[in-house]
Structure formats: structure tokens, C-alpha cells
Design a protein around this nucleic acid. Sequence first.
DNA 1: AAAATCTCCAACCGCACCCGT
DNA 2: CACGGGTGCGGTTGGAGATTT
Length: 435
Amino acid sequence: MNTGFSNAEARAQDIPGTLLEKMVMTSNEGFESCQSTICSHHHHRLQSTISSVYIPDLSKRRHTMGRPPCCDKSNVKRGLWTPEEDAKILAYVSNHGTGNWTLVPKKAGLNRCGKSCRLRWTNYLRPDLKHDRFAPEEEELIIKLHEAIGSRWSLIAKRLPGRTDNDVKNYWNTKLRKKLQKMGIDPVTHKPFSQIFSDFGNISGISNTGNLNKSSNTSLMSEPDHRFSSSILTATEISCFKKTMHEQVQEYSSTVTHPTSWDFLAQFPVHDTEKLPLFFNEASSSCPSSSSSSSTSTFTQSYSCQKSQAPLISPTCTFTWSEFLLSDPVFSTEFHHQEERSDFDEMLSPTISSTMAMAQNDLSSCNITSTGSNDRSVCDHGTVGNELEENNNAAAADHAAYSSSASSFVDGILDKDRELHSRFPQLLDPSFDYY
DNA sequence: AAAATCTCCAACCGCACCCGT
DNA sequence: CACGGGTGCGGTTGGAGATTT
């Protein structure tokens, strides 16, 4: 939120709607109507005020050669936008629409870079944007989509009407990431720390019995492995990680010890501000403690185990992408035709491949010992696979029943997944080519 | 009450890609 | 084909307010 007031000023002053109306109206004669809905926050007022402005024609995007440079970076204003500047942008867009942002500063009378104007419009002034807090449903969707596709914020934002990629990104970084960590879930891999830890003890070069000597440890460290790349934890997170994992690991450690694992972590110099690499993107082993996670959240239940040594393309091992796919009409249609790949299709293929590979492996080898709904996470892929066989012909009709009987977030995901498999049985065909 | 630290998020940066010339 | 400008995108930063010490 930024209208040129400091945050505190903005909150305290609660800019009068009439002021904003005047501000906008005097700057833009093209505004037919300016609403003055009373809101507690001034940006809500601004938002409601501008809600009836011109809807930009996004098709007029192309430029011609020879136009002047966007701006002289050294002479343009930077930083926070004032209400007057906002009004100028609004007035310009109202009269001319969007596009050719390099011309906007000049035409709108702004001493700003065109790119900055575009960002201001895109991330804040667009009339279709929401500026209120994220709803729990949005939160959940972000987590699910992040698990499925990673930090493709723009794609995630497209699934959240009124939210920008910047909104989603900021919300993830400031709230959701920490929330998952508190729940004992790694926000990068979306796996419980317990599973990560146990997997970590079983990565190549480290024996299952934990007989990792100093040299092999060093060797591992000195040769960065591209498979273990992106997860980082702060010292605080490590502390939390240790705390939340301790009990979970004990159970597993009683049978398979990992005396060097903590030593491995301890190698990293720990400072509050320092980021520590953790090489746990690949899981290559069993998942002994998923079902005994200390977290009571349904999120935790969605982390299913991977078959030992299963070839992994993506660290994502759950089925949340299915809902993503099924709810996307473009993908759904194009999936049938298999002629043209949508963004989502292209993006998700590795995950699909990975998931299906694991599902196939699990179909053939995973022993399902269902002990109740709470144990679902023990071997979800196998469960899904077997149930798929049983329901292959009738799952579509059963979908409503599944959905209505779903008792949790995870159940819902699994139900969606069954539907996906039933509707696209070729996914289980090893020869199926996603490309 | 003041200083230190934390939290939040708007804005910026740099890169990649697209497309017209 | 090369060039150059516009746009989209993800990562990062800076600063202001909130909270803690």
C-alpha cells in the first residue's frame, strides 16, 4: 500500500473520500463517476473511487521502432508514489488506456520511468485489484499451487482474482513461508522436516546405517550437487527445525541411526542473519515418520511417501497438481487434444511425470496397510493407484460422492486426483508422452 | 522513553522473451 | 539475421511502522 503517505500517516489519517474524489476528478475529466465508499483504509477509498474507470484494452500492446527511450534513469523520480501522481496515472489510463508505457510519463505529466508507471498501475492502481487481507481459501490455494508449480507467482496470481504476483509473492514470503515452517514443513519442498531429515540421511554417499565418516561428509560438501539446490534455512529456522523434528526423528533413529546428520548441519556457521544450505531437495528413501508427524494440520497429511530409489524429476511428490489441472479449462481441453501445450501444461509436465512415475512404482511395489484414515499419508501413491484401478470406469460418476465425503483438505486433493486418473487413464501408461 | 529489532510490502532491478523494423 | 524497445517475470531492496527490549 502506498499512496505517498507513510503507512502510519495513511492509517491514522484515513484520507477523506472527498479528498480523493477531488484529487482524481480534477486530474481527469474523463471520469464519469467517482464513488466514495467509506472504507477504513484510504486505499480502499481510492480503490472504490477508481473502480469505474476505463477498462484497458490489453490487445494494443505492440510498439513501433524509433520511439524515444523509456526514460533517463538519472533524472526520473523514484520511490513512493504520491496521490497526485496516482491521479495522473489514473487520468491517463482513463483517457488512453494502457500500453506504450514509455510514453505515459510524458503524456501524463509525470517525472517517472515508464516502467515504474506500468508497475504502479499493474500492482496497485488497477481497478480490479483487491487490497484486503488474504482469505483462508486464498491462503490454501497459494500453498497448493506453490507446492505444485513453485514460485511462479504470476501463474499463481492468475488463480487469485484481484491479486497480483507481487501480492502473492509478498504474502508468501512474509506469512505463508513462516507458517509452514512453524508447522514443521519445509516451504521449498513442502515436505515435513522429518521426512527431509530422514531422506537426507539416505542420500547417495551417505549410508543408511549412518556410518558417514568425516571424509565422505567433506566430499559431499565440496562437490555441490545440482539435485540439492534450493532449500535454505536461517539459524532460527534450523533451531525450530531441530526442535520440531527431534521427537519425530527419535522413533526412526531407534532403528536406523544417523549419528552424523546433526553434525552435518553443525558444519554450517550459524548466525542469525546467515542462510544455511540444506541439501534435501531429493528424497531417495522411505518415509518413516510422515504419519507420525507432530503437526496436527491437514497440510502435513498430504505429504506422501516416495518409493525407494524412485527416479525423481521434481521434488514434489503429492497430487495437488491434479486439482490444478482439472480446474483449468484450457489445460483440460488441450490435454484431450494434445496438440498445443498451455503454460500450465508445459510447466507441470515434469511434476506429472515424476508423480506418475512414483505412482506406477507404488502400484507395483507399495504394500498398502491401511489402518484408518489417519494413516493415509503412509503410502498415498499406492492407495491412489489401487483405488484408481478399482474406480477406473466409475470414478467420474463417483466424483461427487468423493467430494461430498471428503473430510479434509487432503482428502479433497486425493479425490480430485482419482478423478484425474479416471478421466485421463493414459497418464498411467508408461509409454504416454506428455510432449 | 528510547533504542534495537522485527515485520511488511511497495518499488526497483535485471533478465528473458517477443516482435517490428 | 541483428537490433532495439516493450513487456512480463521473479528476486531483492529500502524504508516506514510495529513490536520488543
